[in-house]
């Protein structure tokens, strides 16, 4: 389902060239629940962005359901991101001008199919993440945990087949972390959504079925 072949990405930092991702290959089957563990600067976030089509690799290919994402037009890639892949970030990724329900519905603004009835599903998702009493609240009125829950609800609104999560429980308390990971497991089990979670925490990685380790841009199975 996700096939990464010989993927490399370098950055220029001042006069130095840093290899963020170094010739990485990976195969992820549909419905897998896996994690990539690595310390800060190991290249795991860059790797996730390359898989999600947010940044272009220097070399190598990324195929999602058989489509080489860097050989298609920007519009097609945007459509792919909109319908099949979604991201959950470690920071507050809500749009401050929109309330919770609007934030959850946001990806539908870029969807071609405007006739779909998303509102009921958005309400269902908000209830699932347990912030139903906050639907009209703005991000500034929410706690860090509530913001993360709203972002998770948003990630599922277009019924994606892949979730790419970058430190999804970073700076959250242990209790919330467990709740969120349980929610991911449920979504993975019930809806067959593929999860690729990158984290610095080996403890968090233990919740996933398969773990990889990333070090200096190289990926190895843990």
């Amino acid at each position: 389902m996700i096939e990464v072949k010989d993927l490399s990405k370098t950055y220029k930092v001042g006069t130095d060239i840093v290899k963020a991702v170094d010739n990485v290959s990976l195969k992820v089957e549909k419905g897998e629940f896996l994690s990539i563990v690595g310390h800060s600067g190991s290249g795991k976030t860059t790797f996730l962005s390359l898989i999600g089509g947010l940044t272009k690799p220097d070399s190598g290919t990324v195929s999602i359901e058989g489509t080489d994402i860097w050989s298609i037009s920007d519009n097609k890639l945007s459509e792919l991101r909109n319908l099949k892949i979604n991201f959950i970030y470690q920071f507050s990724s809500l749009i401050p001008t929109l309330d919770v329900i609007e934030n959850v519905l946001l990806p539908t603004a870029f969807s071609r199919d405007k006739d779909k009835k998303y509102c009921d599903y958005a309400m269902e998702l908000i209830e699932t993440v347990g912030i139903q009493d906050k639907i009209k609240s703005y991000p500034s009125q929410l706690s860090g945990g509530q913001q993360r829950r709203a972002a998770i609800a948003r990630a599922f609104i277009n019924r994606p087949s892949i979730i790419l999560a970058d430190e999804p429980t970073g700076d959250l308390d242990e209790e919330t972390e467990i709740e969120i990971m349980n929610l991911f497991k449920e979504m993975n089990k019930n809806n067959g959504i593929t999860f690729l979670i990158v984290t610095h925490s080996s403890e968090l990685a233990k919740h996933t079925n398969k773990q990889y380790r990333m070090l200096n841009g190289k990926l190895n199975e843990a």
Binding site: G52, L54, D74, N75, S78, E79, R81, N82, L83, N86, F87, Y89, S93, I95, L106, P107, A109, F110, S111, R154, N158
Partner: peptide, 14 residues
Amino acid sequence: EIGLLRSMGASKGN
């Protein structure tokens, strides 16, 4: 925000 919108599927045109 622009980056986030793009990651949610907003095209350059959007």
